[in-house]
Nucleic acid binder design. Structure first.
Lengths: 191, 191, 191, 191
DNA sequence: CATGAATGAGTCTTCATTCAT
DNA sequence: GATGAATGAAGACTCATTCAT
């Protein structure tokens, strides 16, 4: 629905400009060009609105990653690693201000469950991809997928949150690819 | 000072039990067995209190990691990887509820700068350690250290925030060690 | 607006009954029969509310004086003096408790600017009137107007603040008229 | 006592620098180089301290004026007017920032009584002076003295509070003298 | 007498939520 | 359905005053 989309957009704008604490329902409604009351016609409360916005974006990332995993089935692990990194980064860094703002929501009470749920999808897709590798043998694909994705996530988060210098971004993809290639390579099947 | 310690403890307790939003100055004071006014005798405002608590714990972790890096100078990279992982995990998982609670503070406005500042110390120590490896050549030790630590951080965070099943903890150290060993191993000097 | 009027009235009542320091937003809201939040729907903060109340009343006085000045153009200075005193006193003493309460606001940080701004209007109107006197020549009408009005203001304030015995009020107008008549008379043009 | 003097000085400094609201007992004590507790050894509460400071300065002004009145006994009214204005202005404008700050205290609950009490002294001295004039007959010297002083006070206050442009100060004494000369001159005894 | 940490009542202000229009 | 004024609970922070040392 157009209204819901307007709310999502408005929420993200207020979030990035004013921060989570100043992201009030009134401000979001105003930005979306509607009244506060209308917000409550679509979401039972503020948290639900924020959760929906977070979920939508997490799903987009997950979807992108899952699709990539799908396409990489049967390819060698080295290619898997580079494709996975590429897809994940492209999705997360498409709009850095948004990705960054969403971390704040995820840190809220209830955010963890949401992230966990969607993470599971990504892990499943990745594990499934890994299991299809012709040149490697993963005893526990789910575990390997989890470690891979969380490691990747940690690096991206550090970049977005500013924990590391921005110029680090340039070689991020290269290093991340190297990291996963090396890791997944450990499970390469002896020819 | 005893009062400051009581405030730290109380803050962490309220934080873990009520969450960041409900971690009010009044509640902290009450839990610490003092009045609100006393809190403001030691910290100019709520954010300063939270930042102090966060900083103290981050410094402890950083110190532990730095000390380990010191001790691993000159050792082979494989050992470095396993020692680094071991030290980092031991520090972060000592009290999981506290580590978890602190993520919320770090996500607050101003938290990023603090994390970035202390992260730099860890990166420096780690890079210095890497540069001393007899069996590897790192073109850019700082970059490698950054990637290593953020990847490790991402995995630990996922565990703490519950993004991954708790039983995953058992093999975490093993997998993380594998991850870093593989990554750092890429830079092993050809004999 | 009815709500704004209610706030003005309530503010003045609280001000006269409890004094400026005890004139809290909550008390004003309560007296106005509404909740605190509503006060902030009309004024950004307490100072703005107080300033608005002060301004409204100062403007009323200024308007009254200005209108009188308008009507006295071209009249002899003696008449100007008596009309000015009469109008000023009528406006200021209409509700003594209100006039008195407003002095407290004017003494607040920011109040001076407001008073100065509105004073300028009165001075301008008075100076213009003086310049039109057929029987006098004022080198600097603005200066004379300023001295006249501030002198008048000082006397009225002393009465309102209780610096002088209340029974003094009876002959106030008479003496004030005498004061200004004598002063302005100094500039009477020699026939 | 030295301590009391230090408190007076400190209070005035804090008052002029931070304003009445931010003139806290702790800040005053700190400025005076002592602890809060000591303040309460000399004054029962904050209001008493402020009142004492106000009173001291008002007394100084009153004393100056009274002394001048004493010296002007028997002189012609024109001279009385000029001497009175001169003395009053010299006292009030000696330190404008202090005079200005004290208005804030006077506007407080209880300040009026204090001002009224000390005003009475000045009025008495002035009335007595007027009664001794050889060239004038004042039916009610007290009334005339009151009007004269309040008018003078109003003009000075307007200047100090910034209600009128500062450059106005230059001709203030001249105009104020003219004002009183003209007023008192109305009672000149026909030769 | 001096000290200054502790107190806690009291302010201002914000904001999620409701509901009469 | 939309509106947005009204609500009032809750939070951060201040500061006059006390009292144990």
């Amino acid at each position: 629905m157009a209204t819901v989309d307007a709310l999502h957009t408005a929420t993200l704008q207020v979030l990035t400009q004013h921060g989570l604490v100043r992201c009030t329902t009134t401000r979001v409604a105003e930005r979306a060009g509607m009244s506060v009351g209308s917000v409550y016609q679509y979401y039972p409360n503020r948290d639900a609105l924020l959760a929906a916005v977070l979920e939508k974006h997490l799903l987009e990332v997950a979807e992108t990653v899952a699709r990539t995993c799908e396409q990489c089935r049967g390819k060698p692990v080295a290619e898997m690693a580079s494709e996975l990194v590429s897809a994940y980064l492209a999705a997360k860094l498409r709009d850095t201000s948004i990705s960054k703002a969403l971390y704040a929501i995820a840190a809220q009470r209830g955010g963890a469950e949401l992230v966990a749920r969607i993470n599971t999808r990504m892990v499943t897709a990745t594990a499934s991809m890994l299991a299809s590798a012709p040149d490697a043998d993963f005893e526990d694909p789910t575990l390997i997928a989890t470690v891979s994705l969380t490691a990747l996530g940690g690096t991206v988060r550090a970049l977005l949150e500013g924990y590391v210098p921005p110029l680090f971004e340039t070689c991020l993809e290269q290093q991340a690819t190297l990291l996963l290639t090396a890791y997944l390579g450990m499970y390469r099947r002896p020819a």
